[in-house]
Design a protein around this nucleic acid. Structure first.
Length: 909
RNA sequence: GCCCGGGUGGCGGAAUGGGUAGACGCGGGCGACUUAAAAUCGCCUGGCUUGUGGCCGUGCAGGUUCGAGUCCUGCCCCGGGCACCA
């Protein structure tokens, strides 16, 4: 590996240019702390000697720590990415030293849109782009000093991996969990593909924010809904952030209630089914509402209402998802002219259609209980429909009462509390064959095909009779044909559809002519099971061996972004449960503990101009944020009302005026607005780890990211604080290396454990750092290491025992420096194989303790007492304290509270 | 609108089975070294106050307690998620 060398740093002349000059083994240049002289050396050492290789046949206890593997984008890593990677690296190095056989692998989620879009633009095959990006990512990961076991590297686009992804699809198909269906799908024109429900947010694509429309299409679906209950219930057994669990539960959206049948007296043999969570309010149902798309709408609508209904259905169909959302509170609808019979009273109640009822949830029809449902209430008010109170507790003249209460106006339910009334009504419905208890889910089946090239082909043959069969296992993998032109073939046609000599083939089992499936799998497919492949990545006979899976699974710690809460994490749990049912894995859940590192943000700088459509020859005026006004959909000039477009100035181009205000580099007097947001190329706020490493070294970069705050918390990247950790590393270096001599000699190091204070500090640091790492509180662990370096030589030269313990404690955070100093202390072996130090418990107990002394709860003094002093002795010392006597001012203490090891509080009246 | 997080010095953040608020770092100040600067090292650094000392202080207002950043009640603000799911 060669390293690029950035601008010369201002604090250590000459040192970093050595980056390009490899250090000869065994020579120590006479220099101060210059990480560039030894960091690449140790990275090469770890790699070449496979120091971090993990074996499957170990007798040691295992520890599987996994990062969500990245999509290798063309832009490379930015400083926002490594936070989680460094955290798992610290932990895995620590666990290894604690005697665990650690699995810490890395790979590439390498199918995906950007490579394909790049291919459409330039004709470069995605395989080529992907390979280049992977090489760059691997280089960057290695430059971060990570301890990945590269012998287990995975690439989801590799035929040897695709084969097993297709093999799992075969299993899904055979278990009747994969099926083709003509369904309304989310079509994204800009991306040229359909998307899963989980990939659509506010009517726009999760990636890129492009508009999405509903189009009926024949697509592959996976029956994730069959696992809905287990996907909810098994969350109880995993150690995940509550917020993520909740998002998954909400997404699955389980609710229990009843299905109720309403007869249609005017339509022979037909009936309407509704789902409700409140069967107890059935007597309050005064009308019904169907979704405009409900299949019975045309049939039910009476002749005189035909025109109105058709107009409404048409309008609802054309209204975009966004428009529907925008008018959440303005209810609309139309009367069909038809009536249903109330299942208990037989009363005729009118049937309406309205777009507040969703076709895709429940039965697409509801019984409207305006007295006890907010939406029905609004609708009833809008169209003057009757509102009946059936649960006492609120006032239906003012609004819907949606809480539990006691039934009224409800015949046989009167006087019952809500939970009992629900049961009673459900029983009644079941007895009379008018309904039954049921559970409903928001979760829909998973739309699993994409109209793209760069993904896994389906191992499917379309037979001439229209049926589908599986490609035999022995013929896997089904590989992508090579293309020169990656553009979609037509409006909804994937690029593969036009490759006729690939599409048209022969079924090897029957010899019949068959067609392949032109769709490919979504990017989630590869990431659904990669954690299993890491257990046994080079197995060519099976996806993984049973022994490997039994040994390594489950993943003990999984670290990655919270943005995958309902995407990757839900999908992979689903696959895992299917594999569990097939007896292929032995745990019900794949990821035991989950942690979401906070996002590192960048500062970006914006202004606006009045050329929203980017017309080339327009005369453009630029405005600062202060003159703009944000409307619902757009940003306009505060005075003229002209539509404006946001423009961004790259952080590097910003000019700062004397008052510290960011200014536009070329437009005079234009102040920019500083905002902190996710790093992205388009915002010009990306900081590359390559640059940070070139200037301060890898250890400083690692230490800074771990020191800036708790792992779960996000924060803007600020280069200002790096010199602090850099200085700490420098001090640590000088602690061991005598810089004033020729830099080759170790500093004066005393044999043994040193004096008592030094031994105590060493023990305290060892104990504290260990505990902090166990709790993933890396920022406080680092602070304890800083205290050690500051104080250890205060009363004597550095003791050898202290030095060695310190280097071992430092090594997970700053592995290069620790290895370098360890070697200079005379060790021949890498410290990665050393056992983690332990603290002598006897040294952790102090002889004397300092207690705060309060008078009436206010701190007035402090006393020093032997740590084993009794309560009476402590009280005596406290009451004899001059400051205490002064504040007592002759008054008698009413009570003296002694908190051992903490404080004394003297209470007076 | 609903549901989660979270508000602590100029800044990043420590400290919660209630017990010395502000560890550690950044920034700032003073000093040492130096012809000088940089680097380095040492000390100081929540606010107010006339010194030793005192008063105030963890978003705001109350409460419980000998004692509250930590517990309770009611608000305010910020970040994230969901958004007609019957």
């Amino acid at each position: 590996m060669h390293c690029s060398c950035g601008s010369s740093p201002d604090h250590s002349s000459g040192g970093l240019t050595a980056l390009t000059c490899p250090v000869r083994p065994g020579t120590f240049p006479a220099m101060p702390y210059t990480p560039a002289t030894f960091e690449p050396k140790w990275q090469a050492h770890w790699r070449e000697n496979e120091v971090f290789r993990s074996e499957n046949d170990s007798q040691k206890p295992k520890f599987y720590v996994l990062d969500m593997f990245p999509y290798p984008s063309g832009a490379g890593l930015h400083v926002g990415h490594p936070k989680g990677y460094i955290a798992t690296d610290v932990l895995s190095r620590y666990k290894r030293m604690c005697g665990f056989n650690v699995l810490h692998p890395m790979g590439w989620d390498a199918f995906g849109l950007p490579a394909e879009q790049y291919a459409i633009e330039t004709g470069t095959h995605p395989r080529e782009t992907t390979q280049r990006n992977i090489d760059n990512f691997r280089r960057q990961f290695q430059a971060l000093g990570t301890d990945y076991d590269w012998s287990r590297e995975i690439d989801t686009t590799d035929p040897g991996y695709v084969r097993w992804t297709q093999w799992i699809f075969r299993n899904l198909y055979e278990k009747d969990l994969a099926y083709l269906a003509e369904v309304p799908v989310n079509w994204c024109q800009a991306l040229g593909t359909v998307l899963a429900n989980e990939e659509v947010i506010d009517g726009k694509s999760e990636r890129g924010g492009h508009p999405v429309t509903r189009v009926p299409m024949r697509q592959w679906m996976l029956r994730i809904t069959r696992y809905a209950d287990r996907l909810i219930d098994d969350l109880d057994g995993v150690d995940w952030p509550e917020a993520i669990k909740k998002m998954q539960r909400d997404w699955i959206g389980r609710s229990s209630g009843a299905r109720i049948a309403f007869a249609l007296p005017d339509n022979e043999g037909q009936h309407l089914e509704v789902f409700t969570t409140r069967p107890d309010t059935l007597f309050g149902a005064t009308y019904m509402v169907l979704a405009p798309e409900h299949p019975l709408v045309p049939e039910l609508t009476t002749a005189d209402q035909h025109e109105t209904v058709e107009a409404y259905v048409d309008q609802a169909g054309r209204r975009s998802e966004r428009a529907r959302l925008a008018e959440t509170h303005e209810k609309s609808g139309a009367f069909t002219g038809a009536f249903a019979a109330h299942p208990v009273t037989g009363e005729r109640i009118p049937i309406w259609i309205a777009d507040y009822v969703l076709a895709t949830y429940g039965t697409g029809a509801v019984m409207a209980v305006p007295g006890h449902d907010t939406r029905d209430y609004e609708f009833a008010r809008r169209f003057d429909l009757p509102i009946v109170e059936v649960v006492a507790g609120g006032d239906v003249a003012i609004g819907a009462f949606v809480e539990d209460g006691t039934n009224v106006n409800s015949d046989f339910l009167d006087g019952l509390r809500t939970p009992e009334a629900k049961l009673r009504m459900t029983d009644w419905l079941e007895e009379h064959g008018r309904g039954e208890a049921t559970i409903n889910y928001k979760l829909r089946d998973w739309l699993f095909s994409r109209q793209r090239y760069w993904g896994e082909p389906f191992p499917i043959f379309h037979q001439e009779d229209g049926s589908t069969t599986l490609v035999p296992e022995s013929d896997l993998p089904v590989l992508l044909p090579d293309l020169d032109d990656f553009k979609p073939s037509g409006e909804f046609e994937p690029p593969l559809a036009r490759v006729s000599d690939w599409i048209e083939t022969v079924d090897p089992e029957t010899g019949k002519r068959v067609r392949r499936d032109a769709n490919t799998m979504p990017q989630w497919a590869g990431s659904c099971w990669y954690y299993l492949r890491f257990c046994d990545p080079r197995n060519t006979n099976e996806a993984w061996s049973q022994e490997a899976e039994k040994y390594w699974m489950p993943v003990d710690l999984y670290v990655g972004g919270a943005e995958h809460a309902v995407l990757h994490l839900l999908y992979s749990r689903f696959w895992h449960k299917v594999l569990f049912d097939l007896g292929l894995v032995h745990t019900v859940e794949p990821f035991q503990k989950l942690l979401n590192p906070g996002m590192i943000l960048g500062y970006s700088y914006r202004y606006y101009d009045d050329n929203p459509n980017d017309l080339p020859d327009a005369s453009v005026t630029a405005y600062p944020s202060s003159e703009t006004q944000t409307l619902e959909e757009s940003i306009v000039h505060g005075e003229t009302g002209a539509t404006l477009k946001t423009r961004w100035v790259a952080a590097d181009d910003v000019v700062w005026n004397d008052d510290g205000v960011p200014m536009h580099p070329t437009i005079p007097g234009l102040a920019l607005e500083e905002v902190t947001e996710k790093m992205s190329k388009s915002r010009g706020n990306v900081v590359s780890p390559d640059d940070v490493i070139a200037e301060y070294g890898t250890d400083a970069m690692r230490l800074y990211e771990m020191f800036m705050g708790p792992l779960e918390k996000g924060a803007p990247w600020s280069t200002d604080s790096i010199p602090g950790v850099y200085r700490f590393l420098q001090r640590a270096y000088r602690l061991v290396i005598d810089e004033d001599a020729d830099g080759e000699r170790p500093a004066a190091i005393a044999p043994g454990a040193g004096n008592e204070a030094q031994a105590r500090l060493t023990a305290k640091t060892t104990h504290g750092v260990t505990q902090d790492i166990e709790e993933m509180q890396f920022n406080t662990a680092i602070s304890k290491l800083m205290v050690f370096v500051r104080d250890i030589t205060k009363e004597g030269p550095l003791p050898r025992d202290a030095a060695e313990s310190f280097l071992l404690l430092l090594s997970p955070f700053a592995p290069h420096l620790a290895e370098e100093l360890w070697q200079r202390l005379g060790h021949a072996e890498s410290l990665a194989g050393e056992p983690w130090p332990t603290a002598d418990a006897a040294l952790l107990v102090e002889d004397t303790v300092t207690l705060a002394v309060q008078v009436n709860g206010k701190r007035r003094s402090e006393i020093h007492v032997p740590s084993d002093a009794g309560e009476d002795a402590v009280r005596e010392v406290a009451l004899a304290d001059v400051a205490v006597i002064r504040h007592l001012d002759g008054r008698e203490p009413k009570k003296v509270i002694v908190v051992p090891g903490r404080l004394v509080n003297v209470v007076v009246g």
